[in-house]
Design a protein around this nucleic acid. Structure first.
Length: 203
DNA sequence: TAGGTGATCTTG
DNA sequence: AAGATCACCTAT
């Protein structure tokens, strides 16, 4: 049965160390109330992006555009953008307002509403990789660009909860799909729960 | 392994 | 105004 859960509060998202926070978010639960259906999914894989020094980050070097503006919002804001014309990528903005850090959610383990998540993915069953990959998890949870800028701390439609699950060992490795970032492509800023089945790539 | 897909940003 | 780029996914 479901372990008692509580909504996480603002303070966790305002951590100025996004690399540490990306690891803390593993095991937290994304709750959505979209299309009138309630779903829950545990975060199993994340990546950290830092506006200040990280060439992989959209807001690198203080870059401020219409798109990146969301990244400068307070920790706990949703940053969602369309990637490759097809995929909505879901990030959680971190740090305080004015500092452009974010955590990309790359994979989740479905907990509640699995049938609805499969339907959104146009799949009949949960085969390996069904919920592994940032484009897939947004599709599964019903997240699209209309949620860009939403405050995850207060929203009824999408928020995070803490089920106090022991997440076990965290694997640290390099981020995916950021070859353009030169030396920063080698930073070990991707994290996943060791041994978990819902991860897009091992090592 | 290659191509789809379109918003976003930069360049001319 | 046009062209390049892109934190990916699916099917050959």
């Amino acid at each position: 049965m479901n372990v008692a859960k509580k909504r996480v509060d603002r303070s966790i998202f305002s951590n100025p160390n996004v690399v540490e926070l990306a690891q803390d978010l593993l095991g937290k639960v994304i709750c959505t109330n979209i299309d009138g259906i309630y779903c829950e999914a545990k975060i199993t894989e994340t990546e950290a992006y830092s506006g200040k020094n990280d060439k992989a980050c959209h807001a690198y070097g203080g870059k401020f555009t219409k798109r990146t503006a969301t990244m400068y919002e307070a920790g706990g804001t949703a940053y969602i953008y369309l990637c490759y014309g097809i995929h909505h990528l879901f990030n959680i903005v971190t740090n305080v307002k004015g500092k452009a850090d974010a955590v990309l959610i790359r994979s989740v383990e479905p907990l509640v509403g699995i049938d609805k998540m499969l339907e959104r993915r146009n799949m009949k069953s949960d085969i390996p990789k069904t919920f592994a990959g940032p484009g897939k998890i947004s599709q599964a949870l019903g997240i699209d660009k209309s949620f860009n800028g939403v405050d995850l701390v207060n929203s009824q439609l999408i928020y995070l909860a803490d089920k106090e699950i022991d997440k076990g060992e965290v694997i640290k490795t390099t981020r995916i799909g950021i070859d353009y970032a030169e030396e920063d492509a080698f930073l070990p800023w991707r994290f996943y729960i060791s041994g978990n089945k819902y991860v897009s790539k091992y090592i």
